[in-house]
Simulated scan of single mutants.
Amino acid sequence: MNPSATGWIDKFGYLVKDNNDYFNSFEELYALLKSTGFVYGINLDIPPFIIKEVPLSEDEKAKINLITALYFTYKLKNNEPNFEAFLGHIFKFYKDLGINRISFLNKFLTGKKTSSKLENLLNSRIYLEDNVISKTFNNIITNSLLFIDVLSFKRYLEGETSIKEYAQRLEHVTINITYHTLNSKEKNKNDEKLAQLFASSLTFIESEKQNFDGSYRNDLVSKYSTSENRYFLDVACLTVWEDQSLDYTESEFIFGIGKDLGFDKNEIANSLQDVTRFFNLNVHKIPHLKDHNLAVQFYDSMSKIVNKLILRNSKRLQKELSESKELVTLLSKSTIKDLSPEEKKKVQNQLVDIFKSIPSLAIFILPGGAVLLPIFIKLIPKLLPSSFDDNRVDE
């Protein structure tokens, strides 16, 4: 399943038919979504029943996790789920939230099918920015509060009539918990980045207009369910987490707010252990913990994009390269020694001709696309016969 190509929601519907009983409760669904990072707003994995046919970017994982969360939330309320009916419910839900607007261009390009329209709608929910350049320079591109959509949809299925106001209250509590948790500890750069990420992810409220007086705590137990309170607790644990700089497991604030949320000490300790385990396993993969300068961010982001494009077009590239023996010779030479200026120019011109025949690689023929060629050449040995690379190791 490729979440960046049209038809991915229909493909999900096909895949999920044989996995309708994958979760027996919302708690099981929540536990899996927490292990993938979706609950924390950091998508590093997807549900096991979806086979990774191609390498997935974080935004693509976020799409899969979001549709999985929404579908099984619906399924757990309907013993005999109908996928088309589910799509209709989701579209109506986002319409009631007031975030179902699709640009004129997308309306023009999108088909009449509900799934096609929903693909564009979910795409708008995933990204924080619509600007391609800002996505390139910013490793943090996905909405970190997407689980609020899931909790809101759950309440919507339970009959909530003022669903937009409900979502506003969830965001209000979440951002207040983040603010007060940060103020309960000594701040560092990672804390500032996390706060900015959460603030950028707000949809229904404006962080600048928030009242951070702590009054939100009075209604935590009485207004919200265990599912909602567990999410609030995990957000607090995520915010208090700090890499080996303090004993956050003894945070008085966390145990205090955990008690307000209706949890005992063991449940609060387990929530802290979960976030600790998640970060210990994935600390080097989490974008907002990487302290790169702008140039390194650009290179890292573009490297991921180019890597994904090449792997997904590998068969076509192999065919095109096989028809250009001189280019293959020069590329194989580039893996062991530097090319002369004339050879580099020849490689560039011949590669541009190839990229013209593969539309998804059009990024290389845009102005400045030559900057990406070193990344491409670095990846090329994976596509060349092993005889061209004496040091190649097959994993």
Rank of each mutant, 00 (worst) to 15 (best):
V352L: 13
N313P: 09
L202G: 00
T276G: 13
D247Q: 11
E27M: 05
P48Y: 12
P341A: 10
I102P: 00
I305D: 07
N43G: 09
E326P: 02
S225F: 03
K75W: 04
G258L: 13
R125I: 00
N20K: 14
E171C: 00
A362C: 05
L272Y: 02
A62H: 12
K259F: 13
E252C: 03
D18Q: 12
G159N: 04
E58K: 14
S57W: 02
F355V: 06
K113Q: 11
V283P: 01
S227V: 04
I363R: 11
D300S: 13
D130A: 12
L146T: 03
N176M: 01
K315E: 12
N280C: 04
F137D: 03
N19W: 09
S201Y: 01
D130C: 05
I380Y: 04
F104C: 01
E252F: 08
F137G: 12
L351I: 09
H89V: 03
I99L: 01
P341T: 12
G111V: 12
K304S: 11
L29A: 07
D247V: 11
I310Y: 04
E27C: 03
I42W: 03
A85C: 06
L105T: 07
D274K: 11
S303V: 02
F204Y: 08
L238E: 08
K154R: 15
I51M: 10
N143D: 04
F93V: 00
N139R: 06
E80N: 08
T174V: 10
I254V: 15
D149L: 00
Y40I: 05
N123E: 14
T329Y: 13
E395C: 08
F278N: 06
D59H: 14
S357N: 15
V347W: 13
I254C: 12
L76C: 08
K319A: 06
F298N: 09
P81N: 02
E119S: 13
F376V: 13
H172W: 06
V16T: 13
N139V: 02
F232E: 08
E165A: 11
E342I: 11
D390F: 01
L379P: 02
S332N: 11
K189V: 00
V235M: 13
A370N: 06
I99D: 02
D59V: 05
I205H: 00
L32Q: 15
T276R: 15
L317W: 07
L76Y: 07
F26R: 14
T161V: 07
E84W: 02
R230S: 14
Y30P: 01
L281A: 14
K164A: 10
T178Q: 08
A69L: 07
I377V: 14
D213E: 09
K52W: 03
D45R: 14
D45W: 05
V221Q: 12
G258S: 14
M1Q: 07
N131G: 03
E250R: 07
L331R: 06
T114C: 05
Y30Q: 13
N43V: 01
F86R: 09
K34A: 15
L351Y: 09
L122G: 01
P287E: 12
Y14A: 06
Q348F: 10
F263S: 09
L383C: 05
E206S: 10
S340T: 15
